[in-house]
Write a protein that binds this DNA or RNA. Structure first.
Length: 397
DNA sequence: TCTGGGGTCCTTTTGCCC
DNA sequence: TCTGGGGCAAAAGGACCC
């Protein structure tokens, strides 16, 4: 999708079409999530700090993000893809690979299918997108990038190296700032340069895995299949504070919130995880992680939180200034294929039962209907005390 | 300019067992 | 009893992507 979040917002704001628009938070620490091509003309791009973007383009309209709307638009677009072929591999909310080899008899050449998709997405979702057509995932992705905005580009098999070799190394998938620097240092500028460099040299600069990957990609070699639904490897939540926090009580409360959110998402996905990790980012942006692998996988917020808190307390930070904390659960497996341990102390089963009940309340009354008392802010608490029990919507544990 | 939140994957280090 | 090293899993860090 082209400038996905911004394009979705423009559906509701047709008056802004053709103007610089930036989707991003209003807080002092937010970044650009999406920008229209008009805003990009001023040097604005995603992941840029909002403060800088506004300086570059002061007359841009800034729209705070509405994630639910993007998820809904994404579902609509993916549905169109799946009506073309079941072989759809979403890469993110706004991007997917389609293997259309089997659809050609029915729908025409890959290029015709690409135009069909673009027309249907424009028609049914009123959103612009770009399509890259090629014989491998990597080439198709590169081509879609070159087709933007609102275009289609085919890379025929006999034009692969002509297309690929003049491009800068940064265009390669997996070459970011660091790898680009390392490759530039040994005199490589284009993908063609990489193609004519021995794999051993690349491996020395970037490690064996990245070296082998680049050596293959630089010749368009990429045998990865389009795989419909890869299971998640981890689920987590993190939050940057509006200003740095040095109070351990506040940090622990945040860890509890993030643990609740993470575990609720695990249960909703029918997943359990064995490893709990926390992330701590200090005021100077240095970041550390700590993790602990449990004896049994879990989807219970109380167990995630107890582990997260233990990891945090073990750091003995002593009022260091933190800008972010995060909680993540890794080593996932399906809950119903993973037998639950029958421990003497209940092994968290009673907590699990309580949290499942809270899930049901949340489904009826909205997220946060039932939550730990420490997560109920003072105003909310006062309001609830005044509310009659008849239409009480919030329960305090 | 001052850096979000969701992830994946790879590499290196560490601790443990044999 | 001490030492060394291979193998392994867990832990930690970091690059990268959208």
């Amino acid at each position: 999708m082209d400038a996905f979040y911004a394009s979705v917002e423009l559906r509701e704001r047709p008056d802004l079409v053709g103007q610089p628009v930036i989707v991003g938070g209003l807080g002092g620490r937010s970044v650009v999530l999406s920008a229209t091509y008009e805003a990009r003309g001023f040097g604005v791009h995603s992941a840029m700090p909002m403060a800088r973007a506004r300086r570059l383009c002061p007359h841009a309209t800034v729209i705070p993000p509405t994630p639910g709307v993007y998820a809904e638009a994404s579902r609509g677009v993916m549905e169109i893809f799946r009506s073309i072929t079941p072989l759809v591999e979403p890469l993110s909310l706004d991007e997917a690979f389609l293997d259309v080899a089997g659809a050609r008899r029915r729908l025409g050449s890959a290029a015709q299918i690409g135009e069909l998709i673009r027309a249907r997405v424009a028609d049914e979702q009123r959103l612009p997108c770009s399509v890259g057509v090629a014989s491998t995932k990597f080439l198709a992705k590169l081509a879609s990038g070159r087709a933007k905005p609102d275009g289609l580009l085919v890379v025929p098999r006999d034009a692969i190296t002509d297309f690929l070799h003049p491009l800068p190394i940064g265009a390669l998938w997996g070459v970011g700032e660091r790898a680009e620097e390392a490759l530039t240092r040994i005199g490589l500028r284009t993908i063609g340069d990489i193609a004519h460099t021995p794999e051993a040299t690349l491996a020395r600069a970037l490690g064996p895995a990245a070296g082998a990957a680049l050596a293959a990609l630089a010749w368009g070699r990429d045998d990865r299949a389009v795989v419909p639904h890869e299971p998640d490897r981890s689920i987590g939540a993190e939050e940057t504070f509006a200003r740095d926090i040095d109070d351990p009580v506040v940090v622990r409360r945040e860890l509890l919130r993030l643990s609740e959110r993470t575990a609720a998402r695990l249960r909703a996905a029918g997943q359990v995880g064995r490893t709990v990790s926390i992330k701590v980012r200090f005021a100077d942006f240095t970041t550390i992680t700590r993790s602990k692998t449990l004896a049994e996988p879990t989807d219970v917020a109380r167990i995630v939180y107890d582990t997260a808190r233990m990891l945090y307390d073990a750091l003995r930070l002593d009022r260091a200034r933190l800008r972010l904390v995060g909680v993540r659960v890794e080593g996932l497996s399906e809950a119903d294929r993973t037998p639950r341990q029958l421990a003497m102390d209940g092994g968290g089963e009673d907590w699990r039962a309580a949290e499942l009940a809270a899930d049901q309340a949340a489904a009826r009354f909205g997220p946060g209907a039932v939550r730990p008392a420490t997560l109920v802010d003072r105003e909310q608490r006062d309001r609830d005390r005044r509310t009659s029990s008849r239409d009480e919507n919030t329960t305090v544990w």
